[in-house]
Design a protein around this nucleic acid. Structure first.
Lengths: 180, 180
DNA sequence: AACTTTGTACAGTTTTTACCGTACAAACGA
DNA sequence: TCGTTTGTACGGTAAAAACTGTACAAAGTT
C-alpha cells in the first residue's frame, strides 16, 4: 500500500465517523461526508468541487451545504478572481458545538417557554373559575405545578445556553493547555 | 367552552410542542406525543392505554416506548395486581437532559476518539516512513495536526459529559431556588 | 445587448423510515 | 395441562425524506 492510499484511508475513516454521528446535529450522513471532505480539503471548495469529490448532484450539494451553513459548521469564503461560491469548514469545533445550542436548542427552548406560559395562564384562570367541580380543580392544580416545573426547567436551559455562549463553560471544563 | 375542554387544550399545546422538538433527542414526533401524554397521565400507563389514547397500533407503542426507555425518558413501573407492563415518565427533566449526553453523545465521542486515534497512529507511522515524497509528508503533517486538534476536542467533550454526570454543571448554572 | 456561468426552485424518482397487522413465544391462570 | 393474556419479531405497506435532472433567474462577461 503506497503512502497516498494510507493517507486516504486514514481520512476516510474520520469522514465516515463524522457521517455516522452528525445526526446529533440534525444532519444527514451525506452532509456529514460533505463536511468531512471539506475538513481535509485545505482550500475552500466550490459546489462543483464537492460534486466531483462526492459523486453527488450539484443540487444536493447546494441544499446540504446550506444546512451546514445554517448551523455555522461551514462558512462562505472569498478568493479574488474566483466567481463560484466558496465554502470552508469553520475550524473552531468548540464554537460549533456551542452554535448547535445557540441555534437549534435556543429555538426549541423558546417555543417551549411560550407554550408553557400560555397554558399556565389558561390554567390559572380556569383554577379561579368558581363554576368548576372540585375534582377538576384538583387536576388543574396538579397540571399547574407540573407546568411550573417545566417552566423553571426551560428557564434553566436558557441560562445553560447563555453559559455556553458566554464561554463560561470553559471555566468549568477548561480547554487543554495548548502544546502539552 | 367548559373546563375540561380548556384543560385538554392547554395540555394538547404542550404535548404538540414536545412532539415538534423531541427530534433534538433523536426521537420522532409520535414518540414525543407519547411522552407528552404520559407526562400528564398521573398513573403509569400500559401499551393498551397508549394505543387507546393516541389511536396508534400497539406495535408502534411498543417500539417507541422502547426508544423512550432507552434514553431513560420513561421507566417501567410496577403496581401489584397489574399484569401488563407499565410505563411512566421520569420526572427529573434535568437528569433526562444529562442522560441524553450520557447515552447518545458519550457513544459518539467514543466512536470518534477511537477513529481519530487509529488514524493518528497510521499517519504518524507514515510520516516516519523515509520513502514518501516531501510533498506527501507535508500533507501528512497537516492532517496530523488537524487530528490532534480533533482528539483534544473530543477529550474536552468527554470531560464536559463528566461535568454533566457529576452535576458540576449545576455549580455553573444553578437550579432556581425552590419556591420563589 | 447578447451570451455564459452559477446557484437554486421545483417536480419527479428513489431510498429510507414509520407504521400496521399477523403470528407467535413467554408468562400467567385455571 | 390447556386456555388466555401480553409484548414483540417480522413482513408488508404507507408516508416521509433524500436525491436527481431540468429549467430558470441572477450575476458576470464580452
Amino acid at each position: 500500500m503506497d503512502g497516498k492510499e494510507t493517507l486516504d484511508k486514514a481520512r476516510e475513516r474520520i469522514i465516515e465517523t463524522i457521517a455516522q454521528n452528525i445526526h446529533l446535529y440534525g444532519l444527514t450522513p451525506s452532509a456529514g461526508r460533505q463536511y468531512g471532505t471539506m475538513f481535509f480539503h485545505d482550500e475552500p471548495m466550490t459546489l462543483d468541487d464537492m460534486t466531483e469529490e462526492l459523486g453527488m448532484s450539484k443540487t444536493s450539494m447546494s441544499t446540504s451545504v446550506r444546512a451546514l451553513a445554517e448551523l455555522k459548521l461551514v462558512e462562505r469564503a472569498w478568493i479574488r478572481g474566483v466567481r463560484k461560491d466558496l465554502y470552508q469548514v469553520k475550524d473552531d469545533w468548540y464554537q460549533s458545538f456551542i452554535n448547535l445550542f445557540s441555534i437549534k436548542w435556543r429555538r426549541s427552548i423558546s417555543l417551549h417557554s411560550v407554550a408553557v406560559r400560555k397554558s399556565l395562564r389558561e390554567l390559572e384562570q380556569l383554577k379561579n373559575n368558581p363554576d368548576i367541580s372540585e375534582e377538576l380543580r384538583t387536576i388543574v392544580e396538579m397540571d399547574i405545578s407540573k407546568l411550573e416545573y417545566v417552566r423553571d426547567y426551560f428557564e434553566w436551559m436558557d441560562r445553560l445556553v447563555d453559559a455556553f455562549e458566554d464561554h463560561d463553560i470553559f471555566d468549568l471544563v477548561p480547554l487543554k493547555e495548548h502544546g502539552e
